[in-house]
Amino acid sequence: MPATPLPIAAGIGLRAPHVAQIRAERPAIAWLEVHSENYFVDGGLALTALDAIRSDYAVSLHGVGLSLGSADPLDRAHLSKLRDLADRIEPAAVSEHLCWGHVDGRHLNDLLPLPFTDEALDIVCDRVDKVQAALARPILVENVSAYLRFGCDAMAEWEFVAAVASRTGCKLLFDVNNVYVNAVNHGFDPKAYLAAIPADAVAEIHLAGFDASGACLIDSHGTHVAPPVWVLYRETIERFGPQPTLIEWDTDIPALAVLLDEAAEAQRMLEACDAVAA
């Protein structure tokens, strides 16, 4: 099956508790996204299930562990597994995070914040170039939530993100929740962020819920999309045009119907945006 672009519609993140139900019921979902690393396996039931789902749905591979922003060299073994998986699945999109996760070969297995410096920008762009060359396709790069900033920052987050896209030709996976979380945590106006990103660079949008119970907002992916994030989502699609939009839910995973309801809300907003533009 040839890879086709993601449909400009709402999809959901495919998580293990829903796999059997989706295979059995084949609900009307525009597309599905999986975490690439969950399929870095030689065989087994999960991979068989993904093959079956791929024959019914457009699938996006979303990586959490390639670490585009590490000072360490690119992890070639990891990249090779990603390439093998992409060859097998022929995904509609391949995405990674704008973060780092290992140093001196020791992994922390989290989406860690980069300093927005010229050195970090050079390193990220070099890694994105190499990944795109290895996969022979443009990748999508996602902005992440951050709970701290570094004194050495030489530019704003949106300048860094925009520069990565313009220098490498990669597309952006614009995570609206992460922009909102960072705007609250670091005190900036998310409209400035939207205005700084080139309109044609965004090719996918993520929506998720955050945890507001602590001293700063945390990107928990464990609850509904918050009302102010829906507002920012509407502004985002007004700015970038309707884009493939994904509902992510990774902890305290609810019934599939709850995810489908969230996706339906995103779909309504996409269609409303289309109607205004038309």
């Binding site: 050495c152 670091h186 700063c216």
Partner: peptide, 25 residues
């Protein structure tokens, strides 16, 4: 690390990551 900004102390900010990392493991 020269962590900056906001009312939250650097130790509290790094603790968010510490909790996330250990929670992931």
């Amino acid at each position: 690390l020269d962590l900056v900004g906001g009312s939250l102390q650097p130790a509290a900010r790094i603790a968010v990551y510490r909790n996330n990392i250990l929670g992931n493991y």
